[in-house]
Design a protein around this nucleic acid. Structure first.
Lengths: 195, 195
DNA sequence: GACGTTCTATACCGATCGGTATAGAACGGC
DNA sequence: GCCGTTCTATACCGATCGGTATAGAACGTC
């Protein structure tokens, strides 16, 4: 029924994802997208709706394909391993050779015009969802005696994700994986029970 | 000699600085600038050259008026106080009520189009200048016995500025000063000699 | 008070922004 | 082989982008 599309929508979405990752939401123009995805504008709008919807689809793909380590890490048996897996997972994603540097969620809309504020808000919410989930995991660790009773789970979760957000900036500035790993070694000395 | 300008160039630059701080380099349009600065386009171009030059002047003003604590902190007598002053200084600047949230250097051009790559590169360089200066200060501390001999000054400087960059993201996402202060308390547990 | 100078105000520039209308090409169903 | 459908290609839309030309207004100087 109807003419078959001449491109692979999944490949095109991946190309869009990488463009948004590198150049941000507003920094990526429709022409950048059509060129990089290898499709024409009507194909883009017909398949993905519009720029904002395309970005949201790319963001979902990003979370599924690059941030999966985060939710997997929450299942680790000890809080320390949870923390280490998360920091190493972020460092890996931010410095993968074949990826753009840094983090899509940070690069996309840190500062932006009014037109992108809805996207900016979404990205802030996504960060807070992750932070809250990590805090819940640490609360459980406190209840289980895995973390000391006087440990503030919210503060500890915020601390770890602040490190991850900082490494995103570092990676976008050219830092390599080994440097981020050494940084994580230092950061983990703050983790309860390290001394 | 000629008609006197009807606006205060310093006030106008401050207004531009705050716009760039909040909306980033590309997210701030010339119309945003002329509206916010209360001047017309010919006045803007006549006084500040063009958008890029205006941004660079705003960046210089930012470093002088909001980042001065950094260079002052380097003069503190102990490495620990240097580190604390720097982290608190960043947290203060990033959460000042009358300021836009976060950090101009982070908000301005994390992800951007080709047109802003020169700005992006400048901002990366400015971060590295600060990181290198902090590393030199810690090297001195190692020589003076203020930090342990096995302490890697480069890694420690990177760690602290990664925290600062992370708090910039947190502040742009709505975190308050008290939350950042508690985060800094945790981060400082990694600092050599804390236990 | 005419002059050169420096500002401001308006109107305009080509280019690009995100998005779409129109026409034609490629399919399955009948 | 014609039909409805769905894709693609081109050309186009108004709006906005950064930047400027032109004209007039406000000054000090002579």
């Amino acid at each position: 029924m109807g003419r078959p599309r001449e491109f692979d929508a999944d490949d095109a979405l991946q190309a869009a994802l990488e463009l948004f990752w590198r150049k941000g939401y507003e920094g990526t123009s429709i022409t950048d997208l059509t060129d990089g995805m290898g499709i024409t504008k009507p194909s883009l709008y017909g398949t993905f709706g519009n720029k904002e919807e395309l970005f949201r689809m790319a963001l979902q793909r990003y979370e599924e394909n690059y941030m999966a380590f985060f939710w997997k890490a929450l299942g680790q048996p000890s809080a320390r391993i949870v923390a280490l897996d998360i920091l190493h997972g972020f460092a890996n994603a931010q410095t993968e050779e074949c990826n753009p540097g840094g983090c899509l969620g940070i690069n996309a809309a840190m500062g932006c015009s009014e037109a992108a504020e809805a996207i900016q808000k979404t990205l802030i919410e996504r960060r807070q969802v992750g932070q809250k989930a990590l805090a819940r995991r640490f609360e459980r660790a406190v209840r289980e005696g895995d973390l000391p009773a006087d440990c503030n789970a919210d503060d500890l979760a915020r601390y770890l994700l602040t490190i991850a957000q900082g490494t995103a900036v570092q990676a976008s500035s050219g830092a390599g994986r080994e440097e981020l790993y050494r940084l994580i070694d230092i950061a983990m000395k703050s983790f309860p029970g390290s001394n």
